[in-house]
Amino acid sequence: MPPLPISPETGPQVVLELIYRLKVRDAMSSPVITASPGDSMREVQYRMRDNGITGVPIVEGDRLIGLVSMGLVIEALDAGRIGQLAGELMTRAVISLEDDMPLAFATTYFNRYKYGRFPVLDRDGRLVGIVSASDIIRVLLVAMNKEVERLEERLSVADPASNHDVDGFVRLAFQVTRFDFENAGKASAEFKKALKALGVEADIVRRAAVASYELELNQVIHSDGGSISCVAGAGRIELRAEDRGPGIDDVEAAMTEGFSTANEWIRSLGFGAGMGLPNAKRVSDDFAIDSGPGRGTSARVVIDY
């Protein structure tokens, strides 16, 4: 299958927002046609034929233990093993998605692993659906149609991404999208480059990079999207992170090391350890954060050099 021609990094902003807003559960088919390990490959083949599908998850109860693809059925037919049990011939190393993941993850998985479908698990590891490339395309087309309609209704004014180096100052700003882990850290990398070019000492640049990375990742993990900016010059670096919500319920708790509201799959990426805001504060000469439930969060970091 040719790769899905959609980039989680460089597409138009509207499309990026779509693929991060839509979840795997919005695209998956459910309930799933499954088989048990005790079923024969022949039975699996019939199940594919009768339902017009090309892959059947093998389950014990609601636990996924393997998958039989059309390719495996053909191999079994070819080798005269079609009477054998699915549990013997199934693929055991199945890569699955979680229902809570953004669609951007799914498109990346399809392009990375070249499988025709992925089983979908919920946060407790139960098989809740299956998603194919055509499911993704269908959901995206519907959403894109809606989006185009909305755009046609009103002319949108795009905000300038950045402006740079006026009177020897660094002024940079970036938009940050929820769950956009592909681009996470880009703003910080640009800030770091610009501060270096400005001649700021390496140790200070590092502190600024730590603070901006943590603020940026906080927006990626927790916010509905926002922006992060860096203004530097005349001995002072000022970072500002503003987002559109949903806000922090308990700011004091959020500033405590180890406190985190991140979910399982975010933690599995190595984030959400509850060190972000404390890290940012530690490297700052001045740190201020303002937030509350139902409104945006704004944070300001000052580092003098």
């Binding site: 910080s188 990426l269 190595g270 060190m275």
Partner: peptide, 27 residues
């Protein structure tokens, strides 16, 4: 934990990890 790496790893060092994805490179 990438925040831990951010906070404590020193420049010019080697990172030993199981985090095999782009964000580890960014950090």
């Amino acid at each position: 934990l990438l925040s831990d790496v951010m906070a404590n790893a020193r420049a010019d060092g080697v990172l030993v990890t199981v985090q095999a994805h782009k964000n580890a490179v960014a950090v």
